[in-house]
Design a protein around this nucleic acid. Sequence first.
DNA 1: AACGGAACCAACCGCACTTAT
DNA 2: AATAAGTGCGGTTGGTTCCGT
Length: 289
Amino acid sequence: MEAAAGQWEEEMDLRRGPWTVEEDLVLVDYIATHGEGRWNSLARCAGLKRTGKSCRLRWLNYLRPDVRRGNITPEEQLLILELHSRWGNRWSRIAQCLPGRTDNEIKNYWRTRVQKHAKQLKCDVNSKQFKDAMRYLWMPRLAERIRAASDVKNAAAGTGGAGIWQPPPAAEESENAEFRLENSSLERSSSSELSAVTCWSSPPVSEVADCHSLAMGRSHGDNFPSEDMIGGCGFFSETLPSPFGCFNQGFPDLEQTSWGAGAGDNDDDFPSENLWTPDDAWFLQQMLQ
DNA sequence: AACGGAACCAACCGCACTTAT
DNA sequence: AATAAGTGCGGTTGGTTCCGT
């Protein structure tokens, strides 16, 4: 039977490339009736000239009813940055914490938006410099935006103060809680917008300093960050203790860095605002001194 | 209006791991 | 126990869209 499946794939003139509406309908109908799984036989039985892999990918990334489409919200951006700092390129794991988002979507977001900003800073996206810039500039700024937006919303609604988004719990705790959006203060409103508010702040020096000893001596190469590192630190584990300990390995030549986003930078991370401002340059200069 | 480059994203590929035979 | 098939994941590619010139 299994051998027959392989033979079938060889003999069939398998389609590749973008899916047609007809193919989507066939796949959705078939899964609605028979359920998902056993993708190779599913593809065959449904009469789709696609590999099982292709069907699975199409279903998971696009056709599944709970897939969220549309722009990544600031709250989601913040969560992605935070989780990536913990887990590295564990896209599927990160995606589990953002209901409705797929690993592919998050991966694409990272590769396009985040790496673009790294490029602006003329440093590698995995470099310590960039991670610190994210941590001490980008993330607080995102949090501030979220908070400001919420303040406006609350003022309009006449509701009370915003909740505070605490730094994610220690990994041991979060392994269970997984700080999913739906269970956190980032809960979605019925208008499908994230209603709650967050207040991000840099970790206290002492807290991160505790992590430092664990983080030291480890390279970012293999399986970064390691599980024990996560468990031991809990929060922002792999950085140096304080903002003033950052960038001490040298930041790209600030004079030559294009702090403003380039032409055509219209992404919604900072609408009508550049990510790296001259103020940031000053801030980083102070750190380097 | 046309062109070119950048950005975006759906889909594919290869590999590793798990499960079934 | 060995092998094949199924599944999941991260990396990469290529087509499309957007935007500035």
